[in-house]
């Protein structure tokens, strides 16, 4: 899946018409924009901040979208623009909150070999490791691995140079691996 989605809203309404209507505060248009993007937006926010806080952050993100819609220039698609605001809102949220105090130390160091029976444990361990690394690294990893964005899309969403994406991903992956190894998961 990429950020460039075909507009799923009413065919009769072009993207610029939808933007115009949202700018005028048209509630139906706002709802349409919400409905066409919410599944993806909620998912990425839930990944970054955790499911428990995702509802609040998603609401905040959409309020930002509607506040800022006058600034939408059409350089990216509307879906990408909304996504970018959402990711940044989520990042701001975890920066404000501070990193989770969940650490990989909670996991007993034992010898694990990833197989069918413990893949869920491994997923939990990765989740815990993600909560433990720098939010910027976490975001770049999730945008790549879960949302499958290209480096140029990630650069755009996070407002960083495209050349930095690869090096951040290297760091993210190494740090995650170190944390998983520390609690006994072989690479």
């Amino acid at each position: 899946m990429t950020v460039t989605e075909t507009p799923p809203w009413n065919m009769k309404l072009s993207e610029s018409e939808l933007v115009g209507a949202c700018q005028r505060g048209d509630r139906a248009a706002q709802k349409r924009l919400f409905e066409s993007t919410q599944a993806r937006i909620f998912r990425v926010i839930a990944r970054i901040v955790g499911e428990r806080e995702a509802v609040d952050v998603t609401q905040q993100a959409y309020l930002q979208v509607f506040r800022k819609i006058g600034q939408f220039s059409g350089r990216s698609t509307l879906a990408t623009w909304v996504y970018r605001i959402a990711v940044n809102e989520a990042l701001q949220h975890i920066r404000r909150r501070g990193r989770r105090t969940v650490t990989t130390l909670e996991f007993e160091p034992v010898d694990h070999a990833p197989n069918q029976t413990n893949i869920a444990d491994l997923r939990d361990a990765l989740d815990a490791a993600l909560a433990d690394i720098d939010p910027e690294l976490k975001a770049v990893f999730l945008l790549k691995e879960v949302d499958e964005l290209s480096y140029s899309e990630i650069a755009h969403v996070l407002s960083i140079p495209e050349g930095t994406v690869g090096s951040r991903l290297n760091r993210a992956r190494r740090e995650l691996q170190d944390r998983l190894k520390a609690c006994g998961w072989a690479s």
Binding site: K31, Q38, R43, A46, I119, R123, Q177
Partner: peptide, 27 residues
């Protein structure tokens, strides 16, 4: 190989669905 196995685990993450009353709160 280490990077690849991380990738495989991340692909396996659940995709949470938004709650049905999300719009109401925004509205």
């Amino acid at each position: 190989a280490g990077f690849q196995s991380l990738s495989a685990v991340a692909k396996d993450f659940d995709a949470p669905s938004p709650p049905s009353d999300l719009w109401r709160g925004i509205e």
